[in-house]
Design a protein around this nucleic acid. Sequence first.
DNA 1: TAGTGATTTCAGAAATTTCTGAAATCACAG
DNA 2: CTGTGATTTCAGAAATTTCTGAAATCACTA
Lengths: 192, 192
Amino acid sequence: MNLPPLVQSFVLHFGEMGSRWGINRTVGQIYALLFVSPAPVCAEEIAESLGISRSNVSMSLRELQAWNLVILKHKPDDRRDFFTTPDDVWQILRTLGEERKKREVDPTLSVLREILMQRPASDAERHAQQRMSEMHTLIEQLTHWYEDVKQLETERLATLLSLGAKVTKLLEAKDRVVSLGRSRRPNPANKS
Amino acid sequence: MNLPPLVQSFVLHFGEMGSRWGINRTVGQIYALLFVSPAPVCAEEIAESLGISRSNVSMSLRELQAWNLVILKHKPDDRRDFFTTPDDVWQILRTLGEERKKREVDPTLSVLREILMQRPASDAERHAQQRMSEMHTLIEQLTHWYEDVKQLETERLATLLSLGAKVTKLLEAKDRVVSLGRSRRPNPANKS
DNA sequence: TAGTGATTTCAGAAATTTCTGAAATCACAG
DNA sequence: CTGTGATTTCAGAAATTTCTGAAATCACTA
């Protein structure tokens, strides 16, 4: 591997983290390299920079493409493919969210749904279904929330993020206004 | 493996998904089994139910304990350890969030910080640092948001979730109220 | 259509991860 | 102590994943 020291640290780290993120070392390294490169990089150069075989690069790029994490570019009068990542890190985040949901959440949701359709044949199965239903409900809530906020423009999303838990303050304020409008008094049923 | 059919489907699914979630098959299966079991289960019974070796169960339970995902229970006059998962799925979600952050995010944040401290020695390094800084900023925003909302009680968190993107409506409403209070007119600087 | 260079495929090699059985350790009771 | 049963450890076996080099394919040009 022959890279500027700062880049090398970053690339090696992504390689090591790969396994925890559900991708392999090479895929992680390639992604990191593309992410910090000032211009699109061709496969040959990736192989050289990282000191891995050309075929490994080919397969790993294919993997990254399946994740929609790289963009293909071309130079005039050059047949080779060049690769980059999107410029906008928010866009990368969205893609990552989408793909992870597709791979890590959706299959489980559909298995849960399928199992919950079936008739339990014993107390043990009845109890198991009860638990799975709790899990199913939770995951559905999370994915609905996700489907909802992913539509937001980046700027609004960023605002929402920076507010954090403070949005609950707003909710309380809203509750007060609403109940005030309705009854001219704070709603006593509002425990808080 | 000798389990009620519904439970077996669930357990097998968790086993298969294990690799995508960064845990191995056995760990996934054991977790699934504990999650749907009506009562705490001892290691011997896990090994039998899943048809795996006793030592494998021991190591996998250790892994689950490192993740804080299982609870140890005891029966009177029985020396064996029995295992369960927490009852509350929201609690499970919190634990999962905490542990994944610790393993999958924090190390990267600290590597990024470290690299960003260094002085770039070339244009390539300068550009790389710029990109890493964008990544660092984004991750910090996300983790701050996370640290913030994880403090919320479950009920509030659930409310927030169910609102989804609708909270931005509230934000707009607030903006109107605030600017109205300040200037007696909608603030024209407010682009929306 | 033959030639050239880029890219992909794929069988097997290499590396890594997971799993097992045997032995060691531990905790407690008699 | 000593014996008993539960649990853990760990070296190596088994399984899985990753990686490579050689061959095949592909796209284009002369």
